[in-house]
C-alpha cells in the first residue's frame, strides 16, 4: 500500500508519518516551499521548492500527480480545503477530522466526530481515499528510515486564484489544547475590557483564556486561535471554567475531554449546565471578582 502525506505545517506532517508507520505502508511526504528538517520514518520526500503552501492550485496538482492508495493531510484549514478537491479528482472517498485511521485489506476505516459532537461516526471506504487527521492524535516517529529526497519543479497549469495580500494574525503563545487550566469566556461579557477579570483568574490558576467563536471570530476581542469548539480548538485541560457562554452544541463539542468543568452563567436554563460538573447560577460580574478575591486569600 502506498501513502502520500501532505501538510503545510511540518509538525503536523510528522504526526501523519507516525500514523502511516502504524499502517505499515510505503510512504511519500510531499513538501511545498519547506525544508524537511529532521524528518524520519518515511521512504521518500518530494520537495517542491518552487511552490508555497498558499498556491493551493499547484499543491493540488502536485498531489494529484502522486499516485497513492491513501492520502493523509493535516486537518488545518489549508489541509481540509484540499481534501474534497483531491478526493473528487481521484474519484475516491474523503474523510475530514479523523481521530483514528485503520486499514483492513483494500478498505480504510476512520472515526470522526459528527452531529455537532453528539456522535462519533465510524466510516469505511474502499481506497483510494483522502483523509485529514485531527492534530495531536498520532505521535511523530523519533527514529526510523531516512528518506530518499527528490526535488521537483512546480507543475505548470493555468492559475485562476492569485494571492493579492497576506497578513499574519496576532498570536497568544500558549496553545490552548496543551493547557492544564482553561478559562473560557463567552458573550456574557459586555465589553472587551471586562475580559481583564478572566485573565486575572487565569493567572491565579496558572491557566490560559479561551473563548467562544463569536468572541474571537465575530467581535474579534481575542485572537482567533483561542476559540474552542467544533470549528476551533478541542481542549482537554484538568480544569475548565466556562464563564458567560451558553454552551451551544458546537462549543460544547470542544470541551468533552476536559476533566472537571465549572460553569458560571446567570441563566439557569443555559445548556452549559448540562455538560458541567459544577454549575453556578450567578451574574459573572459578581461571581468572578468574588472568586478572584477568595482565591487570592
Amino acid at each position: 500500500m502506498r501513502v502520500v502525506i501532505y501538510s503545510d505545517v511540518l509538525d503536523l506532517a510528522k504526526e501523519l508519518i507516525g500514523l502511516a508507520n502504524e499502517l505499515n505502508a510505503e510512504t511519500e511526504l510531499i513538501l511545498a516551499g519547506m525544508e524537511p528538517d529532521n524528518v524520519v520514518g518515511v521512504d521518500r520526500i518530494t520537495l517542491y521548492r518552487g511552490i508555497s503552501p498558499e498556491d493551493q492550485e499547484l499543491v493540488l496538482e502536485a498531489l494529484k500527480q502522486a499516485e497513492a492508495d491513501l492520502y493523509l493531510l493535516s486537518n488545518d484549514r489549508r489541509g481540509r480545503e484540499l481534501v474534497g478537491l483531491l478526493a473528487h479528482s481521484k474519484g475516491g472517498a474523503s474523510i475530514v477530522d479523523a481521530t483514528s485511521v485503520k486499514v483492513e485489506g483494500d478498505r480504510v476505516i476512520a472515526e470522526r466526530m459528527t452531529l455537532g459532537g453528539k456522535g462519533v461516526a465510524v466510516e469505511e471506504a474502499k481506497m483510494p481515499a483522502v483523509i485529514s487527521v485531527m492534530a495531536g492524535k498520532y505521535k511523530p516517529p523519533e527514529e526510523g528510515k531516512s528518506p530518499e529526497i527528490i526535488e521537483k519543479e512546480a507543475p505548470s497549469i493555468e492559475r485562476r486564484v492569485e494571492l493579492v495580500d497576506k497578513k499574519e494574525k496576532p498570536k497568544v503563545g500558549v496553545p490552548l489544547d496543551k493547557a492544564d487550566v482553561v478559562i473560557a469566556v463567552g458573550r456574557g461579557f459586555k465589553k472587551k475590557e471586562d475580559l481583564k477579570m478572566a485573565y486575572e483568574l487565569a493567572e491565579i490558576l496558572g491557566g490560559v483564556v479561551g473563548a467562544t467563536r463569536p468572541l474571537a471570530a465575530d467581535l474579534k476581542w481575542m485572537p482567533e486561535e483561542v476559540w474552542i469548539g467544533i470549528s476551533g480548538v478541542r481542549i482537554r485541560p484538568k480544569l475548565l471554567i466556562v464563564i458567560g457562554a451558553s454552551g451551544q452544541q458546537q462549543f460544547s463539542a470542544g470541551i468533552m475531554d476536559s476533566k472537571v468543568v465549572v460553569a458560571i452563567n446567570n441563566d439557569e436554563k443555559a445548556p452549559i449546565f448540562e455538560v458541567s460538573d459544577y454549575g453556578i447560577v450567578a451574574d459573572l460580574y459578581e461571581a468572578v471578582p468574588k472568586l478572584i478575591e477568595k482565591l487570592k486569600r
Binding site: 478526493a87 456522535g119 462519533v120 466510516e123 460538573d277 459544577y278 450567578a282 461571581a287
Partner: peptide, 25 residues
C-alpha cells in the same frame, strides 16, 4: 457512494451536573 457510515456511537462523557445552591459566598 464512495463512503459508508458503519455506525455512529455516542461519546461517553460523565458530568456531575451539580448546580451549587446558596448565596454567592
Amino acid at each position: 457512494s464512495k463512503l459508508k457510515i458503519k455506525s455512529i456511537k455516542v461519546p461517553k462523557v460523565e458530568r456531575k451536573k451539580v448546580v451549587i445552591e446558596g448565596d454567592l459566598d
